[in-house]
């Protein structure tokens, strides 16, 4: 049951003069929902981006589903097809329709024919509640709708892991809910998820484990209920005091 799907061992990384990550070690089990939180600039996004090698690490190793991501030349393309990623700014492809946003990589990478790819895309659009937007262009959607399409686009590749990089940070308040709802269903279905976010409500409702990252260091981690109710470290307590009203 608790089979490790992501292993992060002693990872360090610095940008010019800033130590973004220092000596982070962390495992994620299959089917687990891990919630990473902490102050801005604390290295949360960097850690997430190292997992599918949008960033390289300076030291340490990361193994995702048996592939050593930190090798000089890992099998990146097959790795990335197994790891879906959702970005803060959605990054939908603006020059093609919503439907084609979801079918493009299916046809190119998964080698599905057009009809099959479209069927999968339409099913996913129904799941995220936007079947009527199939022929719209991304610019015609609201932020929340864009993010739901982005989730559908990532899911179309049948990833084993989903990474969420502040998926609601660029959204208006009334659109956050619709995105979190989709993520909640995903979590209940048993998807392995690593979520970087400030949505404490989502963490409490959906995540198995919480990880507090500040100044590039892993300060504290543990089961969600425990961390939420009784954080041990002073730094974590201070952060909660800052954000909880």
């Amino acid at each position: 049951m608790s089979e490790k799907i992501i292993e992060i061992r002693n990872v360090s990384k610095s940008f010019k003069h800033v130590q973004a990550l220092s000596d982070i070690s962390l495992d994620v089990n299959r089917g687990e929902v891990v919630f990473i939180f902490g102050p801005s600039g604390g290295g949360k996004s960097t850690l997430l981006r190292c997992i599918n090698r949008l960033e390289t690490v300076d030291e340490g190793e990361i193994i995702v589903d048996g592939i050593r991501v930190t090798d000089a030349k890992p099998d990146l393309d097959s790795l990335r097809a197994e790891v879906g990623m959702v970005f803060q700014l959605f990054n939908l492809f603006p020059h093609i329709t919503v439907l084609n946003n979801i079918t493009l990589a299916q046809e190119l990478i998964r080698k599905r024919d057009r009809a099959e790819a479209c069927e999968i895309a339409m099913n996913l659009l129904k799941r995220v509640g936007l079947p009527e937007k199939a022929d719209a262009f991304p610019d015609q959607l609201s932020g929340g709708q864009k993010q739901r399409v982005a989730i559908a686009r990532a899911l179309a590749m049948n990833p084993k892991i989903m990474l969420f990089d502040e998926p609601t940070s660029a959204l208006d308040a009334e659109m956050i809910r619709e995105v979190l709802d989709v993520m909640m269903v995903l979590a209940q279905e048993g998807m392995t998820m690593v979520v970087v976010s400030h949505e404490m409500g989502f963490a409490k409702a959906a995540s198995d484990r919480m990880i507090f990252l500040a100044e590039g260091k892993l300060i504290e981690q543990g089961p969600t209920d425990e961390i939420y109710a009784h954080p041990k470290e002073a730094r974590t307590k201070a952060f909660f005091d800052q954000i909880l009203y």
């Binding site: 393309d77 097959s78 990335r80 097809a81 970005f87 990054n91 020059h95 190119l108 590749m157």
Partner: peptide, 29 residues
């Protein structure tokens, strides 16, 4: 914007697929 390449790569496309299907069609405009 950089995010376009990142999104394409994160879906498993290699550099040239991302160029051909995502970046160049937008750049041509």
């Amino acid at each position: 914007e950089r995010g376009q390449m990142e999104a394409a790569r994160s879906l498993g496309m290699n550099y040239f697929q991302a160029m051909r299907h995502v970046i160049l069609p937008q750049a041509i405009r």
